[in-house]
């Protein structure tokens, strides 16, 4: 379906926990190509292996066997420190529970990934963080401490943190799991905007209405890909959000 080289290519990825008689085969022989510009949702019941796959694709974990090619480079055998550099330069992460530093300003939270990049000066760091926060509509909240922000605002800070290093891929692990429908749509709106600007997004979720905003749906079951279908006409999150707001007004 696409002639360019995939950003993410999984070749027979298998992940086994507790090797031995009680081994758990979380993933078995996953083959997957994800191309630039896609917005992929990983679905599946709990224990299906969707989080394990996300962790391996996000270089937080390594496959027991198989090859993981990232941008044409085999990263499945790299050292921990090489993996942390890849995460720092190429990836952004959004988590279900936001994972912001407590009692720390939004700005400092967004600056965090850049702190671990020695090539970026203090000044650049600040500028990039402010730009990222502006993108998620929190320009007037940069000096607020995280505990002074609402759930939706906290997740937007987390999104700003994920895109501050201008990543190749943004991984999101149930980003809307702790949010109400309205705020979830808002988060999806930012994700669609990022996707439209060319970012590749991989998101784990189990909410069907959230999947409808993505353009490719991969369903896992017992560590295998059950279904991999493109969504030709994804819903527009911005429109859905406005519809929801206007319904409330009536």
């Amino acid at each position: 379906m696409n002639s360019q080289t995939p950003v993410i290519r999984a070749e027979g990825i298998t992940r086994i926990f507790n090797p031995g008689p009680n081994e758990v085969r979380a993933l078995s022989n996953i083959n997957l190509d994800i191309y630039s510009g896609e917005f992929v949702s990983l679905m599946g019941s709990s224990g299906s292996g969707k989080s394990t796959l996300l962790n391996i694709l996000g270089c937080l974990d390594q496959p027991t066997s198989g090859r993981y090619m990232l941008d044409g480079e085999d990263v499945s055998q790299l050292s921990q420190s090489a993996l942390s550099t890849i995460r720092n330069r190429k990836f952004g992460f959004v988590f279900q529970s936001y994972n912001l530093l407590p009692k720390t300003t939004a700005l400092e939270n967004v600056e965090l990934p850049l702190m671990y990049n020695p090539e970026i000066s203090l000044k650049q760091r600040r500028e990039k963080a402010i730009t990222a926060l502006t993108k998620v509509g929190l320009k007037d909240r940069i000096m607020h401490k995280t505990n002074e922000l609402s759930g939706g605002q906290q997740q937007r800070v987390a999104i700003a943190r994920a895109l501050v290093n201008d990543p190749v891929v943004i991984f999101a692990d149930e980003p809307t799991g702790n949010l109400d429908t309205k705020t979830s749509y808002q988060v999806m709106e930012y994700f669609q905007e990022l996707n439209a600007s060319g970012k590749l997004l991989v998101m784990v979720t189990h909410e069907p209405d959230i999947v409808a905003f993505t353009n490719r749906k991969i369903t896992l079951q017992d560590g295998k890909i059950l279904e991999d279908t493109p969504i030709s006409t994804p819903k527009n999150a911005k429109a859905c959000y406005q519809e929801l707001v206007s319904n409330e007004d009536h």
């Binding site: 996000g58 420190s81 890849i86 990836f91 965090l112 671990y116």
Partner: peptide, 16 residues
């Protein structure tokens, strides 16, 4: 622990 996990996830090297 959670904060350390986050720092590691966003690319903090173990020695830092």
């Amino acid at each position: 622990t959670k904060e350390i996990g986050l720092r590691l996830a966003v690319g903090a090297p173990a020695r830092i």
